[in-house]
Amino acid sequence: MIGTDRYGYASRLAHVTPQSKLLTMAVTSILCLSLESISVSVVTILMMGAATVCMGGARLCDFIRMMRIPAGFMVLATLTIFIGRYAPETDILAGIQFGQFVYGVTTGSALQGISICLRALGVVASVYFLAMNTPMTDITGALRRLHVPALLVELMELMYRFIFVLYETMHRIRTAQASRLGYDGLIHAYHSTGTLVAMLFVRAWQKSERIYAALESRGGGQSVCTLAEEYESGHAVYLLCMAVSALQIAVFCMERGLTA
């Protein structure tokens, strides 16, 4: 299993109706994105983190590890927002003078950067509530019920299955190449990676032909039909959704009241 998938299948909420988790993710992330407030973002991170850990049963260290994944992009992009060019008389927190201008960080740019980072992490925490508590097959099933075009959902379901088949093939080829010193030096590494990608493409092509033959021989060549799972009721998750969104709005109103 890859990424959030291993948590999705092991979660205590895995058998709860996926629509409830989709709704919770959508409402809390839209509120976090629209209200644009530091306190709302902090509340979203804490509440959705707590829900994933306490209700879903994920370990806190796993949740924190997952939250660190987008750090590379966040550091680079926020650095760009942080740093600006200012006139020498500007009151800056930290910076350096080049020629006529000072390049550095002001209180305003620092606050903007922090606000954007927290808002992004708030939405990430909301999406993790869905991703770490719902197997991908349940998400595609929910999309089917939400009237997303059947062909698109079918393509997603097949693609999801094939990802693991190709991953396994890729790892086997890579191990075979590495055991023959295929990644020793830059030129060898390029040649081996190129061959690996090309062979993976050829295998994918051949596999698609075999899978289609298997599907057709069972009378399922036109489309892939699967039975929907029976889910537990999502009352607890709907309650969570109402509680978190009410808290987000309350915190936003309090912050506005304090600043007014």
Binding site: L155, L158, F162, V165, L166, A204, S208, Y212, S223
Partner: peptide, 12 residues
């Protein structure tokens, strides 16, 4: 219909 499995494998 064979193109469905082919496209899915290309996406994967």
């Amino acid at each position: 219909p064979k193109n469905l499995t082919l496209l899915a494998l290309c996406g994967a």
